Computed example of a mutant assay.
Amino acid sequence: MRPRVLALGNPYRQDDGVGPWIAEQLRQAGLDVLEVGDDLTRLVEGLAGADEAWVIEAVVSGQPPGTLHVLEVGSAPLPAFERLSSHTFGLSEALELARALGVLPRHTVVFGIEGRCFGSGEGLSPEVAQSAEKVIGILLGRLGHPRAD
């Protein structure tokens, strides 16, 4: 059984669009991806019923742009990243809500890419685009996909 891939982000806020950008590349490789956008309640809904989930999100933690954070969601909460949207809760809180509701998959991995630019506009900064390509290779490789790098 394949993991459920969930991509977060807004493609009209520069690096925040890394999730949707990766989602499109994975679709072109023949994979199904649920685009959550920036509504994290949809993330909680999308996690329900999955045995395994891979979550893709732009993050801000103070690390250099393009830094890739690969975080296994265990029994402890994830570190809180800076909120990128105006919604009342962020990625860490959404995953904890899923845990509290009993819908957090037994194996959940977050692929967070440190962003640089989050203003209005389309397109990824070079550092984020490079990390996005790396994430695509990692995900396709984990699936044994022939297009993996």
Rank of each mutant, 00 (worst) to 15 (best):
E52K: 09
A23F: 04
F118N: 04
M1W: 04
D51N: 04
S120W: 08
V109P: 09
E45L: 04
V109I: 06
A58N: 05
E127A: 10
Q63F: 14
H107V: 15
V70R: 15
L104V: 01
E72P: 06
E82Q: 15
I138F: 07
R2F: 09
G141W: 06
G30P: 09
L31V: 00
G62L: 04
Q130L: 07
G17V: 03
A29Q: 11
R106H: 15
G115I: 07
P105Q: 03
R106W: 14
I136T: 09
D32H: 10
G19C: 14
D149T: 06
A29H: 12
E122C: 12
L26P: 02
D51M: 08
R147G: 05
A53W: 06
R27G: 15
L124A: 01
H107G: 14
I22V: 04
L124F: 04
S92G: 14
S75K: 12
V33E: 11
D38N: 04
V73K: 13
V135E: 01
Q28C: 10
T67K: 10
R13F: 08
G37Q: 04
S92H: 13
A7F: 12
T41W: 14
P11S: 02
G66E: 05
R42S: 12
Q25L: 13
P77D: 09
E122F: 12
F111Q: 09
L6D: 08
L95W: 02
A129I: 02
P126S: 02
G46V: 06
R83L: 10
S120T: 02
R116Y: 03
V60S: 03
G17A: 06
R142T: 05
L104I: 00
V109M: 00
L143K: 11
H69N: 06
V135M: 13
A7L: 05
E82G: 13
P65S: 09
G112I: 02
H107E: 15
E57N: 08
I113Q: 08
A76G: 05
